[in-house]
């Protein structure tokens, strides 16, 4: 595994799997383009709403979400919306691969399980990284921050990407073995996404559902992303909102999600097979 020749072979296999998925993903150029544009539409309406709200009262939310930074937060929300596609990427991909029986072709090839896993995860991350880079540059032009804060933001974005990719991978794996479970999980994940405060501050929701939002790990991811950037602009204000829960939850779930995805993948890999057709 760690010999130079083996490393080269492993890297070539991972690269091939990743490139293959990107090619499949970009087969229909318009579909690929829509993935860039759709999140733009999702920030258009919050922009109108917030513009109106902040014109009435600059401190309407009574927290760090204000007239000074809502455009930044909406742009960061766009980044998250792009990454949300990761949740559905593997579901569609594995559905296709199952029906084309190309999963059999990959599984029967002399490729280590680890390479297959990394190849698939990498393809998702790469294909979603193009709009992210563009928006991060735009945010940096509008709200410049020190390099250390930028690194922190990129780190949080990576954690979000990895967690979403893992969650998407889990959904995809259930698509292979049991589409009913996959569909049920998809509904659950959609609900979690809705109460994650991607574009809105928690204060906009009724107090009765704050409890649901606060037990949702994704909320802490997105809040930490916003606050990490804002810390580069207004350090003291941002730091007064960052809690130990933000850090702990993001670290724990960024570790746990890929572990669960890997475990499920390894289980399915060893049990997978065609049962007659």
């Amino acid at each position: 595994m760690f010999k130079r020749e083996n490393l080269k072979i492993n890297l070539i296999q991972i690269y091939s799997l990743a490139v293959k998925d990107i090619k499949l993903h970009t087969r229909y150029k318009l579909e690929f383009f829509v993935e860039f544009v759709a999140p733009l539409l999702t920030i258009f309406f919050p922009y109108i709403i917030f513009s109106t709200l902040f014109s009435i009262n600059e401190n309407i939310f009574n927290n760090y979400y204000s007239t000074k930074n809502y455009i930044l937060f909406l742009l960061l929300g766009y980044c998250i919306s792009c990454l949300v596609f990761l949740l559905w990427t593997y579901k569609d991909l594995f559905y296709d691969e199952k029906s084309w029986k190309t999963l059999n072709a990959v599984f029967v090839a002399p490729v280590p399980k680890f390479n297959i896993l990394v190849g698939y995860l990498l393809s998702g991350l790469i294909s979603k990284s193009f709009p992210l880079v563009f928006i991060v540059i735009l945010c940096f032009i509008l709200y410049p921050i020190p390099l250390i804060n930028l690194i922190l933001v990129l780190l949080v974005l990576f954690c979000i990407s990895l967690t979403f990719a893992s969650m998407g991978f889990i959904l995809g794996l259930f698509e292979i073995v049991n589409e009913d479970i996959s569909a049920s999980l998809a509904v659950g994940i959609s609900f979690i996404s809705l109460v994650s405060c991607v574009f809105y501050p928690i204060e906009i929701f009724p107090k009765e559902i704050h409890f649901i939002i606060r037990i949702n790990p994704l909320y802490y991811y997105f809040d930490l992303l916003r606050l990490s950037w804002w810390a580069g602009v207004n350090y003291e204000e941002a730091m007064s909102y960052i809690t130990i829960y933000h850090i702990l939850i993001v670290i724990v779930f960024t570790i746990i999600a890929p572990i669960i995805a890997s475990f499920l993948f390894y289980r399915i890999y060893s049990k997978y097979g065609s049962s007659g057709y």
Binding site: I12, Q13, Y15, S16, L17, V19, K20, K23, L24, R27, D96, W100, K101, T102, N104, A105, V106, A109, P110, V111, S274
Partner: peptide, 23 residues
Amino acid sequence: LGDEMIYYRMTGLDNLKFFARLY
């Protein structure tokens, strides 16, 4: 497995190149 185990959304050449790399 019949005419399966091939990526329909890729060209014939891309398919063969992909499997050549895997093997």
